[in-house]
Simulated assay, not measured.
Amino acid sequence: MGEIVDEIGRVHREVGTRRVASQEAGTVLLRRTFGADAADVWDAVTSPERIARWFLPVTGDFRVGGTYQLEGNAGGEILECVRQERLRVSWVFGPDPGFSQVEVRLTPQDAGRTVFELEHVSVVPEEFRSQYGPGAVGIGWDLALLGLGWHLAGEGISPRDAVEWGTSPEAQAFVARSGEEWGRAFAASGADPDTVAATTVATIEFYTGAEG
Results as ranks from 00 to 15, higher is better:
F206S: 12
E77I: 06
E180R: 09
D110V: 11
S100F: 06
G212P: 14
L106S: 03
L143T: 13
E85M: 05
G35S: 10
V92E: 15
A111T: 04
Y132S: 08
I157E: 11
V175Y: 09
G149L: 04
P125N: 12
W91C: 00
P125H: 00
V82C: 04
E117L: 01
E71P: 08
A188D: 06
S130I: 04
P159L: 07
E77M: 01
Q23E: 07
A36L: 00
V104Y: 06
W141N: 01
G212S: 05
G154S: 07
E103A: 15
Q172S: 05
H120C: 06
V64A: 02
F93Y: 09
V82D: 06
F99E: 08
V82M: 05
H151I: 07
A153K: 07
G156Y: 02
S47H: 01
V11L: 14
G209S: 07
A39G: 14
E127Q: 07
L145N: 06
A52Y: 03
F128G: 03
Y207G: 13
S189K: 06
W150Y: 06
L146Y: 15
L145K: 05
W165P: 03
A202H: 11
V137I: 03
A136V: 15
G147Q: 15
A173H: 09
T33H: 10
E119N: 13
T200L: 03
V45Q: 00
P134G: 03
T208H: 10
Q23R: 14
L70S: 02
Q172W: 07
E126S: 14
T114R: 02
V82G: 13
S22A: 09
G112C: 15
L152T: 02
D110T: 08
D142W: 12
G190R: 00
T67Q: 13
E117V: 03
G9V: 05
D40Y: 08
V45A: 10
L56S: 04
G75Y: 00
R18V: 15
Y207L: 12
Q172F: 12
V121G: 00
R13M: 05
E127P: 00
A198T: 15
G9C: 08
A191Q: 05
Q23W: 05
I204Y: 04
V5P: 07
A191P: 02
T17F: 15
D40Q: 10
G35F: 01
D40W: 09
L118M: 12
L118Q: 02
G98F: 00
E14T: 13
I157G: 04
E119H: 12
G154W: 01
T195L: 05
A197V: 07
E164Q: 10
E180N: 13
S189P: 01
F174V: 02
S168R: 10
L145M: 14
H12A: 13
F93V: 04
G98M: 04
E155I: 09
W150P: 00
S158F: 15
D40N: 12
V45F: 04
A210M: 11
R13W: 11
L56I: 10
H120K: 02
G138R: 04
D161V: 05
V41D: 01
R177Q: 02
G9W: 05
H151R: 11
E119Y: 03
V201L: 08
R88L: 08
Y132E: 08
A136G: 12
V5Y: 06
F116S: 03
A21V: 04
V15N: 00
